[in-house]
């Protein structure tokens, strides 16, 4: 992509009245002949928390993976601050560490203890001084209630503790946007709560986030915007109030009904 093209894109973004941090335009993703995401477009502004909901297998996680350049895309554009996130199938250097991601399965490095898990990337990628990163990491660990766990290995932690470490690890890279991919799906209810408290705290600090979740009450509490995807299409988009109290589409109503049990009583 030439410099002029990039300028064009930047202008386009500004014309649409957006200082959009992330913009996804007509994204198409296929695995072989199967289309997973079909013509997905949306924007995320700084400080916004976009919650993506939808039935399993609808392409939510794939969407996050595309944004994080872990998947190649077959059509459309994904831009962060006006610049494409992927170049030649890999994360582009200009985007580098600006996108952080936490996965559903615990993705901590099992051979490193908590503090080394957190400090590895800031030290090696951002070339920061270890003692500085470590001080920051300790501060953040304290904040998420994991003081004293610095020397523990991932296998010694509960699922909820691991996910909190994973969040701290992502935050120590100071991303501009954080992608959370069903981070509580493998946890039991109490642990879900402790992890979601941490995410709510991040939202209060103004962190821009893209969250895929099945926790509807959490989605409602944290979202500034909700988007529902079904069969690779955006079915509905709106404020949490609109979406949860008065969904416009039949598909969204049907989906939200699966979370209540009044109809089966």
């Amino acid at each position: 992509m030439g410099k002029e093209d990039i300028e064009d894109i930047k202008e386009e973004g500004q014309q649409d009245g957006g200082q959009a941090m992330l913009s996804v335009e007509h994204l198409v993703k296929r695995f072989g002949t199967e289309t997973i995401l079909d013509d997905i477009s949306f924007r995320v502004n700084p400080g916004e928390v976009l919650v993506i909901v939808g039935p399993s297998g609808c392409g939510k996680s794939t969407l996050l993976r595309c944004i994080n350049a872990l998947e190649d895309v077959q059509g459309g554009k994904i831009l962060l601050n006006g610049l494409p996130v992927a170049e030649g199938g890999r994360k582009s250097p200009s985007v580098g560490t600006k996108i952080g991601m936490v996965f559903q399965s615990y993705d901590l490095f099992p051979h490193l203890n908590v503090i080394d898990n957190i400090t590895l990337a800031p030290c090696k990628v951002l070339k920061k001084k270890r003692f500085l990163v470590e001080a920051e990491a300790r501060e953040l660990l304290k904040r998420v209630g994991l003081e004293g766990k610095e020397k523990s290995y991932p296998r010694e932690l509960s699922g909820g503790q691991k996910q909190r470490v994973a969040i701290v690890r992502a935050m120590c890279m100071h991303p501009e946007i954080l992608l959370l991919d069903e981070i509580t799906a493998a946890l039991d209810p109490e642990m879900v709560r402790e992890v979601l408290e941490v995410v709510l705290d991040l939202a209060r600090q103004g962190m821009t986030m893209l969250i895929v979740t099945h926790e509807m009450s959490f989605a409602r509490a944290i979202a500034t915007k909700v988007m529902m995807i079904s069969d690779g299409h955006v079915v509905e988009e709106g404020t949490p109030e609109e979406f949860f109290t008065a969904p416009k589409t039949a598909r969204a109503r049907q989906f939200l009904n699966t979370f209540t049990y009044e109809s089966v009583r």
């Binding site: 994080n68 994360k91 580098g96 490095f109 990337a121 990628v125 951002l126 890279m173």
Partner: peptide, 21 residues
């Protein structure tokens, strides 16, 4: 594979992901 992916997500390149993770 998730190990490599989370290394990439933290901004590591292929060589860094290989040697550190």
């Amino acid at each position: 594979a998730i190990q490599t992916e989370s290394a990439f997500s933290l901004g590591m390149n292929r060589v860094q992901a290989f040697f550190y993770v």
